[in-house]
Write a protein that binds this DNA or RNA. Structure first.
Lengths: 191, 191
DNA sequence: GTCTATAAAGAGATAGAC
DNA sequence: GTCTATCTCTTTATAGAC
């Protein structure tokens, strides 16, 4: 039997992805979790706790993924490829949680919002270091600055959440491969 | 003097981008527009009207942009480049309106939601045709299917809304150029 | 076309029994 | 740890005067 607190978090993530944080009521969360609304407040202090916990969880997974890559792979090009894989597989394996982090940050206030923003920045800068190393090793082009190269990469990777279908013909791993090739080689026909 | 109805729409777009559709109250919209909340309802029937009008406006501009390119440019590669430019310039010239369309569709219900979804699909399919023509003319690679090539392109273009700074050092046109190069050539160093 | 006033529903959250 | 009942505030929207 899954603990109630975990189930609450799971259904909250599902609802936040489907209807947005502001668009989801605590009544809906309670109902989907199979408890009364008041019981919810035995497990959380406020609705915002759920959002914060989900964002934190998402970033913990992404950060530990890229840290593992940094610890185990030293070759710049392979590092980049493995970081892309780790990112895409993590995100697509739990669309509810990561979509919530990517889209619903607005719902957080004060120190928690600042904390999540800081960890997002931290993650972006780790990827930027990987991209930078690849530039220095002549793996990636240097006529576009590292910040842009990294932001475009994240654009390509993150927003697959809007159209990736877990039950489709393309697996997450296959999509990660495809994105890697497109990011590195581009869309032009090889002459 | 700008008409009240237009001002309402403008401030609604600004607020919807900043706080989300569900996170924005009609009180805030009225206040920022300089009228009482009740007066708002002389101009609109419901809050959702604002969201629908903004989504429709966004898609009208994007569709007419790509239609103009199709009408005036026949070369596949130039068509693709011009379509990218038209898209990026349109979106970045009015971040409030286009961000609302891209992010807040969830707030629409019923037939209006279906209508906006249909026009988004229509736009995607027009871009897909351009990409497909480029494949057939050996401009773009054919080892990745047209649907994926188009979705990745839209990923790259659309989500610049989250980090493009209108007052930054990079102009919208320069960013469009950069995205075009990255999409076509990729990130690898040319050997 | 804008106002003051208010209705009606829904939101997040709490009290206190079991 | 869950419940019933309720509080308080905010929400969207309307009525009707000017």
């Amino acid at each position: 039997m899954v603990q109630t607190a975990d189930r609450v978090l799971t259904v909250a993530a599902r609802l936040f992805r489907a209807k947005g944080y502001e668009g989801t009521s605590t009544r809906e969360i309670a109902k989907l979790a199979g408890i009364e609304k008041a019981s919810l407040y035995h497990h959380i202090g406020a609705k915002e706790d759920l959002l914060y916990t989900l964002c934190d969880e998402s970033l913990n997974r992404l950060l530990s993924g890229v840290e593992r890559v940094l610890a185990t792979e030293k070759d710049p090009r392979l590092r980049l490829q493995q970081a892309i894989h780790a990112h895409v597989l993590a995100v697509l394996a739990d669309l509810d949680t990561h979509t919530t982090m990517l889209r619903e940050l607005r719902g957080l206030t004060g120190a928690r919002r600042a904390h999540v923003l800081a960890r997002r920045k931290e993650y972006e800068l780790m990827l930027r270091e990987i991209v930078s190393d690849s530039q220095n090793s002549s793996v990636l082009r240097t006529d576009i600055d590292v910040k842009m190269l990294t932001l475009v990469l994240l654009n390509m990777l993150n927003w697959t959440i809007f159209w990736f279908k877990p039950d489709g013909t393309l697996s997450a791993s296959q999509l990660a491969d495809l994105l890697t090739r497109m990011y590195l080689e581009g869309a032009v026909a090889s002459s």
